[in-house]
Design a protein around this nucleic acid. Structure first.
Lengths: 341, 341
DNA sequence: CTGTTAGCGCTTTCAC
DNA sequence: GTGAAAGCGCTAACAG
């Protein structure tokens, strides 16, 4: 390993001068600097980050606390797209990403703060945790800058980026209403997800805009999973055969709901229309192709990285980013008024 | 920040003793140890990794050099699944993963070795680079332990994990042959991919096993992309209308090939049968569902992490891991002998 | 069993 | 413009 000491020796100067020259300080003689840089290159020097960050307390790394980066979350490539966005932006800003492997067991053992301190990350991006996750408390009270995805917390060191879930859900349900549907179910995620709360509101708002009373019994939770939604849809549809449409708070759940419909010997969209949320790739290839609400996943990650770095580098920016969504009309919605939705 | 110094002061011992107690050395009095651990916990101490690795030269981190963790690689969730596997195993073995953002531009500026040194990773896992990538040379000659995915290099510090691509391709093409197909095209990736070389061999071997002469003109490259394969298939099928089947070296390319077939007003599998490779999630939801060769993506990542850690910790293991593949029969292959394939 | 001392590679006062 | 020296938090001889 080549150190500045080696360079100093070879260039016949002190380590101090080497340090200054390499870090671009302007109080170094031009000739000296040139010489030092030459020697450094010749020796293939690269600075030791550990030593540097021991002093500066900065590591130029961002910690990632992501759930859903484990087995069998492959269909759910949302995390992946978000990750791609974070990776791209972090790279551009010259930060590296370190993935914390957070199994629930490990969480119990190691506190959030400890985790971050040990790994010496400058800040953290968190995604996929529940509102009742004990980590959340630690996060807000901690002084480590942090960006949350889909969790509305704000503070001097906490920001978040999310999608406009109310509007997204509203648009989806309005689309069903505009196509003549009057009995619309909702398969939501779970109560400890901020997006579920907002998507429920969008659903209710849309109904209200058409003067349709909100029926609590039409709303069930599917735990954001394919199987969860399948079960939920079985129950919902069996109990309320008058339903002509269902809005699912995620595409994965739309998949499950469709399976249930088919399991009951009915068809989508002939017997029941389905709208999902997320716009995962599968929806376009599924038969029927699934109408859904597009979420800008890549952008979410990109913005999260940007926001965190802004915070880290002391820029005064809005800690609250909300991205647009848009309805993607495909084949899983049938019009009850005319021939096609 | 709490340091061992703080603990030492409060526990009325020297820093050395604190260090030893906390690191589980057995030459510490039981009482002393208990006291120190107590104080450490009370103070919320967590060791500073930077300081520690400055001495030990170990960081317990694995660097990841992955292509395809950028925009628009979402359909290709292979990398993601591999990543999940690595993440899980690395977590179990108490290593963290750091994602190097390697844009081609950055690669030019910074050498592989420099990158690793600076970030102080103990070892590296590399995936998605071409055989003619300049990094490859550096990698073998470097002394940084490294595991490659789908690139057959071996050495004291280099290992790799891949799938049995010859057999996988062989099985796929045999399946077509067994269904009566005699004119079978191959849409391969590119010449600088090891998997392409092996899948071509499997294709040729299968033909040979049936006494069918290998026809070079039936083999084209699709660059592993949907659009590349679409173009390739247009050309191939227009030129050789006698083709009744095509084997694609990736599912993404199978998608593209099918689009071309449909673009020419033909149907899959009625007019032409298609077999893919990888078994990405889309294939099961596509209409028709695509017959493909399953690759154990998660396992690939899992094994890669395991192998690297084995190497890092000086265990004497085989540096060469080949995973099985298996044919997944679905709807994109038609039997020319009986009614159904 | 415990403490003293030195030093990992780097940055940063503070002199000169 | 340059260098000597101190110190970041930790570990590892080496004494005792």
């Amino acid at each position: 390993m080549v150190t500045i000491k080696d360079i100093a020796k070879k260039a016949q100067v002190s380590v101090t001068t080497v340090s200054r020259a390499l870090n671009g300080y302007d109080d170094v003689n031009k000739e000296t600097r040139k010489k030092i840089i030459g020697v450094a290159e010749q020796l293939g020097y690269s600075p030791n980050i550990a030593a540097r960050s021991l002093i500066s307390k900065k590591t130029k790394t961002i910690g990632l606390l992501l759930s859903n980066v484990t087995r069998a979350s492959s269909k759910d490539n949302i995390v992946f797209e978000v990750l791609c966005g974070m990776n791209d932006r972090a790279g551009e800003l010259d930060y590296d990403l370190v993935l914390f492997s957070t199994t629930p067991q490990k969480q119990k053992i190691k506190s959030y703060k400890k985790l971050c301190n040990e790994r010496g990350v400058d800040g953290v991006i968190i995604s996929g945790i529940r509102l009742d996750d004990p980590y959340l408390e630690e996060i807000v009270s901690s002084d480590i800058p942090c960006v949350l995805i889909d969790i509305p917390l704000q503070g001097p060191n906490v920001g978040y980026v999310t999608s406009d879930n109310v509007k997204g859900a509203y648009t989806a349900v309005r689309h069903l209403l505009d196509n003549g549907h009057r009995h619309i179910g909702l398969i939501n995620g779970h109560s400890q997800a901020d997006v579920s709360i907002h998507r429920l509101k969008g659903y209710a708002d849309a109904l209200e805009s058409c003067g349709i009373p909100y029926n609590e019994a039409y709303v069930v939770d599917g735990a954001f999973s394919e199987s969860g939604a399948r079960e939920a849809m079985y129950r919902l549809y069996s109990r309320f055969p008058e339903l002509t449409a269902v809005f699912c708070a995620s595409d994965l759940m739309a998949l499950g709901a469709i399976q249930a419909v088919q399991g009951l010997g009915r068809l989508v969209p002939e017997d029941i229309s389905v709208v999902g949320f997320d716009n995962i790739d599968l929806t376009a290839y599924h038969s029927p192709a699934i109408t859904t609400v597009n979420q800008h996943k890549y952008e979410t990650g990109y913005q999260a990285a940007q926001l965190l770095v802004d915070m880290l580098e002391g820029r005064n920016v809005n800690h609250h980013i909300v991205l647009n969504t848009e309805l993607v009309k495909r084949e899983s919605v049938r019009s009850l008024t005319r021939s096609n939705g």
